[in-house]
Design a protein around this nucleic acid. Sequence first.
DNA 1: TTTTGAGTTGTTCGA
DNA 2: GTCGAACAACTCAAA
Length: 477
Amino acid sequence: MKGTTILWLRSDLRLHDNPALDAAAGRGGSVIPLFVWSPEEEEPWAPGAASRWWLDKSLRALAASLEEHGSRLIVRRGPALGVLRSVASECAADAVFWNDRYEPAVLARDARVERALRGDRIEVQRFESALLRKPADSAKTDRTPYRVFTPFWRSLLARVRIEQPRDPPGTIPAPSSWPGGESIDSLALEPDVDWTQGMRARWTPGEAGARAVLQSFVESALAQYPSARDQPDIAGTSRLSSHLHFGEISVREVWSTVQKSAHGSDAAAEAWLRQIGWREFGHHLLFHFPQTTAAPLRTEFSRLRWTDDPQRLRAWQRGATGYPIVDAGMRELWTTGWMHNRVRMISASFLVKDLAVAWQHGARWFWDTLVDADLANNTLGWQWVAGCGADAAPFFRIFNPVVQSRRFDPDGEYLRRWLPELSRLDAKWIHEPSSAPPLVLAAAGVRIGETYPEPIVAHDRARRLALDAYEEMMRES
DNA sequence: TTTTGAGTTGTTCGA
DNA sequence: GTCGAACAACTCAAA
């Protein structure tokens, strides 16, 4: 008879298709599901405010479903190693199982924990549950990591066998007595001042919510995905990012569900699964180039001169740049903890190229405000936009916020939803109110500089300056 | 071994 | 109005 196993839950807050849970439940002894709150061990990327809100809800959902399975969620405060050791000794546990994470600080902490536990004669087993392929395995034949997406993705598709997702274990054997723990409330993950109303209205954190979102996406949006994914006014994307980040649903599960719905070859399913490929690529890059959370992968970009203007950054954060598509996106982010992907690109490009603010400031703001904040995806996205990452957009590819707005939100529906002060402008003028004739503005009740800001920079000129700065950087190298 | 062509998401300019 | 070229340099895989 095997002894008690501690199941250390982290970014795998689910019962379906959870390899560490399956192995722990199948080991023969009892299982103690444990969550350790230790943000200080994840610095400088401890969960941001929006992520903490989501985590609070997700932990409650997980605790409830564990109870339905005759088990419990034990919650404690870190540091992790100390907690694991005391729970192990309180319950005479002889094994700790967990699913791996790949953030640099977490990887280092986990390696330390594993060594120490083994020194205590406690069995440690680590599992892969977040990705289709372990980042350590994702190197080219010459053993250097991929730096271009398409070959990375082709090799993954050709070489990786993607396993079928598994159902939750039939039983999760409970110990004869449970160790003590703290309440989820006591972690104080919710903000003191309640600004989470918009998030509560939009999201249902937790495994059941994740599965429902996947089902409804597959049934009603997947078929139109290739064209609808770029329209921010409709729900054309899956909106699974946060659920995936917290591991409320497994990547194998979304993979298999989307493939089944496609009946073999289907361009829509392929386009969406490619996005899962980008998620894999982001984790691959984070694992092989951990310094990229702070520094450009292409080192010559560290010579690029950014402005150091806190007012520009603040205007961007508040959605007060005078460019409606940027401001709408930033307000959607602030209100719901999420922003449509197309608008993320536009607003990120605007901060970096038009406002000449270093991408790291944008990455930090997204980190704090996104419910789906994910170090791998966030780093990849910002370096891509700034042109300094692997397989990045060329630096001269600068988004024109007005052109993008007209192309992807032609009727201005998205703008009207988030910028009520412009809602009476028609589609002809709402994308660029500062150029509208005075009579049009007056009729719509818009006073530029009062009810809606003047453009903070002129795009044409800002674009020219960005290209000049880039050229200068290249000349110096 | 060397060469060749392709590579997430764009914009502007001039013919 | 439409269309192709130019905007850089480098990585990667196939030939």
